[in-house]
Design a protein around this nucleic acid. Sequence first.
RNA 1: GGUCCCAUCGUCUAGUGGCCUAGGACGCUGGCCUCUCACGCCGGAAACACGGGUUCGAGUCCCGUUGGGAUCACCA
Length: 469
Amino acid sequence: MSEEIRVRFAPSPTGFLHIGGARTALFNWLYARHNSGKFVLRIEDTDKERSTDEYIDAIIEGMKWLDLDADEGPFRQTDRFDIYKGYIDKLVAEGKAYYCYCSPEELDAKRKEAMKQGKALKYDGKCRDLDKPVEGVKPVVRFRMPHEGQTTVEDLIKGNVSFDNEQLDDLIIARSDGTPTYNLTVVVDDVDMKITHVIRGDDHLNNTPRQTQIYEALGYKVPKFAHLPMILGADKARLSKRHGATSVMAYYEMGYLPDALINYLVRLGWSYGDQEVFTKDELVEYFSFENVGKAASIFNPEKLLWLNAQYIMNSSSEKLGELVMPFLVKDGTVKEGQEIDMAWLAKAIDTLKERSKTLLELAESLRYYISEDVEFDEKAKAKFLNDNSRDMLVELKDGLTAISDFTTEEIEKLFNSIIEKHEVKLGKLAQPVRVALTGGTQSPGIFEVIDVLGKEKTVNRLERAIQSI
RNA sequence: GGUCCCAUCGUCUAGUGGCCUAGGACGCUGGCCUCUCACGCCGGAAACACGGGUUCGAGUCCCGUUGGGAUCACCA
C-alpha cells in the first residue's frame, strides 16, 4: 500500500493572498484532491518584523473565497519554536551546525566587496572552525554545508537539477535572538507534518539543494518536489501592482467569480488538450504534473475577463442574484432594508447575464431595473428624445396604458401598429423607448426590458421622457 | 557577476521524431444575425529565437549563441 499524499501551502503573512500564491495554493489543492490526499495550510511567520495577524486573516479569507479548503491547519511556525530549537541544538551538538559571531555589518561589507570583484556572494566560513566563543557577541547558528560533491534535486516538473555543493554556503538557521529561519523551519515542518510533495514557486528551486542537505543531516528522507513556473506581468517582470490588481480579493471586489479566477489560474502553466473551461470536478480529475509546463507565463487580464463572462453566462440567474446583492447595496441601488423580490431579480438577470462580464457590470445594468428613476444620458436624450419621436412615444404610452393584458405578445402588436402607421422601422421606435426606459442606448431587447419593468414603471418612465422633451 | 531555470502566434497553450501546409483559446479584424448592446455563427491576419549537429526525416533529440526569468539576507 502506498503512503498518503500530503501537500502544503506555506505562505508568509507579509501581504495579502496574491495571484501567484493563489496559483500555488490551487495546484497543491488540486494535487491533494486528485490523489485523495491531505492539504495542509501552514503560516510561515518566523519573521516577526514583517508578519501580521491581519495578513494571516487576509490569506485565509482569500482561500475561503476561492474555496480552497485545507484539511489541516492553519499551523503557525511561531507556535512551534520549541520544536525548531530542539533540532538546532541537535545539529550543533553533532557538529553539523556551528555558532557564527560575524556581525551583519561585517558580512555586508564582504558581500559588497565580493560583488565589486564579481565573485560569488558567499559566506567565507570565517567562524566555521572556531573553537571558542567570542565574548559579548550573540551568535547566529550556521548550517555546515558540504564543500564537495553535488546535490541533485529530483523535480516532478523540471526534471533532475544538479548543483555543485561548492556553491552552497553555510546558511543561517537561527538568528542571534535564537529564532529559527526559513530554511530550517521549512525542512523541520515538512518532515514533522509528513509532507510527501513540496509544490511551490520555482523561485525556491535554488534553495532546494540547501534544504536537501538539511534533510540529510537530520537523517530524513527528502520529499518529492514540484517547482511551478512563475507568473509574470506584461513586461515579463515579476507580477506587481504596476500590472494591475495582484490581490485575490481585489478580484472579488471587481466582480469576478471565484471559479473563473480558478479556471484562469489553472490554465497558466497547466493544460488539458484544447479544453479551456473546466468544472472543479474536471480539474480534480484531470490534474497532473505531466501537463504542467516549465516556462513562466504572463498574466493576461483580458482572458480572465472573458472567462468570467463565460462563468456569468453559465451561472443560474438565482445564484447570480445572490452574488450581485452586495454590489447593489454597495452602490446604493438597493437601500438598506429594502425588500427585493429574488424571483423578479432572477428574471431581470436573465436578460443581462450574457452582456455582463463582471458582477459589477451586472449591478450597474440592474440599476435601471431597480431604481425608481433613471438618469438620461445627455447624448442619447438629444438624439432620441425629441420631436421626431414624441408622437410615437405618446401613442405608445397611451396604448400601453389601455392594454389590460400586459403580455409581450400584445405589446409587440402595439409597437407594430405604431411603426406601420408612421411608416418607420422598429429601430426608430425602439431606440427612443430604450432611452426613455433605461436612460441609455444599450440594453437587452426592448420587449424584455418592458417585461421586466412591468406596466407601471414602463408607463411612468415614458411619461417622464415625454415631459422632458 | 556566480549558479540555476526557461524559450511555439501579442498572450495562454496543443505538439513527447513522420498524423504539422503547426491545432485551439483570449485579444485584434472582415462578415452574418439584429430594435441598440451583447451573445452566437462563419471567415482573416498572426508563432516553432538563431546557428550547428544527430536522423531517411526535427517544432519535437544533442551542442552552442542570443534573449528572458529566478536566486545569491540574522526575508520567506
